[in-house]
C-alpha cells in the first residue's frame, strides 16, 4: 500500500501541473469574453455582459457558418489524409523498395519547406482547374501540411507491424476485407486515432492556405477570427477564440488515451 502511494504522489502532482498549465491560459479568455469594461489597474473586469456571446451566436456574425465550414473541411481532410496515409504508411513502414528514402524525404518536405511558397505555385494551377473559392480546393491544399504527419505516424506503427497476423487470419479463412477489418484495423487503431487527431487539428488551424485558396468564399473559423483580432474588439475575439478552441480540445480529449499507455502509437510518450 505505502509503495503504491509513494509512486502515485509525484505522478498526481505532475498531472495536476499539466492540467493547470493547459487550462490556466483559458481563464483570461473566459473573463475577456464576458467583460464589458476591463481597464488597466483592475484585476478583474469592472462590469460583466453577455454581449460578446450574444453577438457570436447571432446570425449576422456568421460564426455558425464558419464553424460549419471548419468542421466540414477538417473532417474531409482527416478522412482523405487517412485514406492516402494508410497505404503510404504501410508501404514505408513494412516494405523495402527502390527509392524509399527519396519518397520518405518528399513526403516530409512540406514540414521543412514553407507551405506558403508551395501554395503560391499551386494557386495558379488551382485557378486553372477551378479549385479556388470552393471547399474541395481548400481540402486539397490542407492535405499539404497534414499528410506528412499522418504518413509519419502510420509508417511508425507499420514499422512494428507483423504481417504474419494477416497470413494467420487468411489461413483461418478470412477474406481480404475481413483481414483488414479484424486484424489490421484493431492493431493500428490507436495510431489511426492519433493520426486523425493530428489531421483534424492541423486542418482546423489553417489560416493562410484557406484564405489564399478559399479566396474569401470559404470562411472558416480562423479566417473569421483574424478579421476580429484586427478589429480590436477584445470581448468578441476572446469569445470567438473559445469557440475556435473547443472542438479541437474535445477531439483531443476523446483521443488522448491513444497518445499514452502501453498501446501508445507514438514511441517515447510512455505512460502518463
Amino acid at each position: 500500500m505505502t509503495r503504491i502511494k509513494q509512486t502515485l504522489q509525484p505522478r498526481t502532482l505532475i498531472l495536476a501541473a499539466i492540467v493547470v498549465g493547459v487550462l490556466l491560459p483559458f481563464v483570461p479568455l473566459l473573463l475577456w469574453s464576458v467583460s464589458f469594461r476591463w481597464l488597466y489597474p483592475s484585476v478583474l473586469p469592472e462590469s460583466l455582459s453577455l454581449r460578446a456571446w450574444q453577438y457570436v451566436f447571432s446570425p449576422r456574425a456568421e460564426v455558425l457558418s464558419a464553424l460549419g465550414y471548419s468542421t466540414l473541411v477538417a473532417l474531409l481532410v482527416t478522412a482523405l489524409s487517412i485514406l492516402i496515409g494508410l497505404p503510404a504508411g504501410r508501404a514505408l513502414g513494412l516494405y523495402k523498395f527502390r527509392g524509399k528514402t527519396a519518397v520518405r524525404f518528399l513526403i516530409l518536405a512540406p514540414t521543412i519547406v514553407p507551405t506558403l511558397a508551395a501554395a503560391m505555385g499551386i494557386h495558379v494551377l488551382f485557378i486553372r482547374y477551378g479549385l479556388v473559392d470552393n471547399v474541395l480546393g481548400v481540402v486539397l491544399v490542407h492535405l499539404i501540411p497534414v499528410l506528412p504527419y499522418v504518413v509519419l505516424i502510420l509508417s511508425g506503427v507499420f514499422a512494428n507491424y507483423n504481417p504474419d497476423f494477416e497470413a494467420q487470419a487468411q489461413t483461418l479463412g478470412a477474406s481480404a476485407w475481413q483481414r483488414f477489418r479484424h486484424v489490421t484495423l484493431p492493431t493500428i487503431f490507436p495510431a489511426l486515432m492519433v493520426a486523425g487527431l493530428f489531421a483534424f487539428i492541423i486542418s482546423w488551424s489553417q489560416y493562410i492556405l484557406t484564405l489564399l485558396i478559399g479566396g474569401g468564399q470559404v470562411v472558416t473559423l480562423p479566417v473569421l477570427l483574424f478579421s476580429f483580432v484586427s478589429s480590436g474588439d477584445n470581448a468578441i475575439t476572446a469569445a470567438l477564440s473559445l469557440v475556435f478552441i473547443a472542438p479541437a480540445l474535445l477531439f483531443l480529449l476523446a483521443t488522448a488515451r491513444y497518445l499514452s499507455g502501453n498501446q501508445a502509437s507514438l514511441g517515447g510518450f510512455g505512460k502518463l
Binding site: 504474419d164 497470413a167 489461413t171 486484424v183
Partner: peptide
C-alpha cells in the same frame, strides 16, 4: 486462394491476436 483452401497453418510464434 488461401482463405478458401482450409489448410490451416499454425505459426512458430503462435500469433494469438492480442486484442
Amino acid at each position: 486462394p488461401a482463405e478458401k483452401r482450409n489448410a490451416v497453418m499454425v505459426f512458430q510464434n503462435h500469433l494469438l491476436f492480442p486484442y
